[in-house]
Simulated assay, not measured.
Amino acid sequence: MRSRVLGLVTAAVSTAALLTLAAPASAEKAAKSESPATTASGKAAAAFVVSESQFNQMFPNRNSFYTYGGLTAALGAYPGFAQTGSDTVRKQEAAAFLANVSHETGGLVHVVEQNTANYPHYCDRAQPYGCPAGHDKYYGRGPIQLSWNFNYKAAGDALGIDLLNNPDLVQKDSAVAWKTGLWYWNTQKGPGTMTPHDAMVDGRGFGETIRSINGSLECNGGNPGQVQSRIDKYKQFTQALGVTPGNNLSC
Rank of each mutant, 00 (worst) to 15 (best):
A199C: 08
E208W: 04
D162M: 07
L241S: 06
G181E: 01
V50A: 09
D173S: 09
A117F: 08
V49R: 09
W148H: 09
Y129M: 11
P167L: 04
A31M: 13
T195R: 02
L98T: 13
G76P: 12
N223E: 08
D232N: 15
A23H: 14
V111L: 14
G160T: 01
F150C: 04
D87L: 06
L21W: 02
V50F: 06
G80P: 02
T39Y: 06
A27Y: 04
Y66H: 01
A154H: 08
V201K: 04
V111Q: 11
N247V: 12
Q171V: 12
I210F: 01
C219G: 09
S14Y: 13
H197G: 09
N214A: 08
N100S: 09
M58R: 04
L108Y: 05
Y122L: 06
G107F: 05
S41Q: 15
T209E: 03
P24T: 15
T72L: 06
C251F: 08
R211E: 07
T20I: 13
G207E: 04
Q239R: 13
S174D: 08
G107T: 01
I213P: 06
P191Q: 08
T84P: 04
T10L: 14
L217M: 07
G181C: 04
R90A: 00
N56F: 04
G222D: 11
N118D: 10
P245F: 11
S216K: 13
S26D: 14
A240W: 02
R2T: 15
G192K: 07
H110C: 13
A25P: 07
P24G: 13
P24H: 11
G205P: 06
A155T: 04
G242S: 07
R141V: 00
G142V: 03
Q228W: 05
E28G: 13
A158H: 10
Y234A: 06
D87Y: 07
S102K: 09
W178K: 00
A47I: 06
C131M: 05
T187I: 11
S14P: 07
Q236S: 12
A96W: 02
A154R: 03
M1K: 12
A177L: 03
H103T: 12
C123E: 00
M58W: 05
S102E: 08
T15L: 05
Y129T: 12
H121K: 15
V49D: 02
L159I: 04
L164T: 08
A175N: 10
A95P: 09
G76E: 08
N166C: 03
